[in-house]
């Protein structure tokens, strides 16, 4: 029973957001990883290849790829196909810029041993409080 589970990280950017989680344990490659016109993940070999980040809360360990990583999320948002929030296991410089440019709620920097990418499952309904860093599983995927 994961419903009601709370993960406490650091509030990186408020406010709160509720939505469906898209969990990417290997992050998403920036360049050649996202189609910024559609929000579709196009990275070869990605577990969610062909799915869209649009309207989802992205749960990822950190960024992956070039210094322009944040630009792809910025461009998705400009095209109306961006995500609605972020959960990063550990904040890094490119994640920080992605949150900055998209101005989306974000919780990050979870304690050692707390891995949002394994506790949260794809399709879970979660609430991310970007002020306090509290992430709660509101509904498990199967119950939705």
């Amino acid at each position: 029973m994961r419903k009601g589970t709370v993960l406490q990280g650091r509030g990186a950017k408020g406010p709160s957001v509720e939505g469906i989680a898209l969990v990417c344990p290997n992050s998403i490659l920036g360049w050649n990883g996202l189609d910024v016109r559609t929000g579709e993940i196009i990275e070869e070999g990605h577990i969610h290849k062909g799915e869209r980040i649009t309207g989802k809360i992205l749960v990822m360990p950190c960024s992956r790829g070039s210094i322009a990583w944040s630009d792809y999320f910025d461009d998705c948002q400009r095209n109306g196909v961006g995500p609605i929030g972020f959960v990063f296991t550990k904040m890094d410089s490119k994640c920080g810029t992605a949150v900055f440019v998209t101005q989306l709620p974000c919780a990050a920097d979870f304690p050692e041993g707390v891995d949002p990418c394994s506790i949260i499952h794809d399709g879970d309904l979660i609430r991310v409080d970007g002020e306090t860093g509290r992430v709660e599983i509101l509904e498990e995927r199967g119950a939705l």
């Binding site: 210094i67 910025d74 410089s93 900055f100 440019v101």
Partner: peptide
Amino acid sequence: CNGGGGIT
């Protein structure tokens, strides 16, 4: 030096 991105 940290990476980041063009805007920051």
